[in-house]
């Protein structure tokens, strides 16, 4: 390629060059940001720990769970009818798998100014009403939801401890029958955990499901 014209010191050309360069930079930055925003944590990725406030007022980190083999991280909330449909199933998942080393960690990422039903006070109320056996944390800055790539409620990440690191083993929905759990022919989360407990790789590590949009702060 002939670089001569590009290296021309003509001030007009220099201006054009600078303009082109800044355009290129902007484009690069935009693609980078877009890629970060649209993908989030995928199976195989390392998941970062966090410190978020639980409904009992205590700060909770994944590092606090010394005995855990992993986690079922569920981005969920109070108001979303689809999240409500899955509440009892999330409780059942915790009761079944916390003793086996995979507790549920529920995180509400919604901005309470946009959805007052998802305020911290309402979270406390909901946790009491349903006697949540798991922690119910508020992601007040929405930073964890953004890092993980949460897009809806409910949205699940299964993490597995490996050499003191947390690896993403599964991302997606809970099962394939939102209306009636009894009709589910596929229980994605249960199967993934069973496979992890048996020392196998997760056969279906990504699924998609319907849910409410996360109420992002403007």
């Amino acid at each position: 390629m002939d670089l001569e014209p590009l290296l021309n010191k003509n001030p007009n050309n220099m201006k054009a060059q600078r303009f082109l360069l800044s355009l290129l930079l902007c484009w690069g930055l935009a693609t980078l940001l877009w890629a970060q925003r649209s993908t989030g944590l995928q199976p195989g990725d390392e998941a970062p720990d966090f410190e978020l406030k639980n409904v009992d007022g205590q700060l909770v980190s994944l590092a606090d769970y010394k005995q855990a083999k992993g986690f079922i991280i569920v981005f969920t909330c109070n108001h979303c009818p689809f999240a409500k449909l899955y509440e009892d199933r999330i409780i059942a998942l915790h009761n079944k798998y916390a003793p086996k080393g995979f507790p549920v960690v529920a995180i509400n990422p919604n901005d309470a100014t946009k959805q007052p039903e998802d305020s911290f006070e309402m979270m406390i109320q909901r946790a009491q009403e349903k006697s949540f056996p798991y922690v119910y944390l508020q992601d007040a800055t929405q930073e964890i939801a953004r890092t993980y790539g949460a897009a809806r409620t409910p949205h699940v990440w299964i993490l597995q401890k490996q050499d003191n690191k947390l690896k993403v083993a599964y991302v997606g929905g809970i099962d394939n029958s939102p209306e009636d759990p009894a009709n589910a022919t596929e229980k994605y989360v249960e199967r993934a955990i069973e496979e992890l407990l048996a020392g196998r790789v997760v056969s279906k590590n990504t699924t998609k499901a319907i849910g409410c949009t996360i109420k992002w702060r403007n």
Binding site: S38, A151, R152, H155, G172, G173, N176, S177, P178, E179, E186, Y188, T207, K208, A209, I210, G211, C212, T213, I214
Partner: peptide
């Protein structure tokens, strides 16, 4: 059709299932 995983990607790959 509530077997969402079977069709969401057929509509749009970048769609995570959130509505609207």
């Amino acid at each position: 059709n509530t077997d969402y995983d079977s069709w969401i990607n057929r509509i749009e790959e970048s769609w995570q299932g959130e509505i609207p």
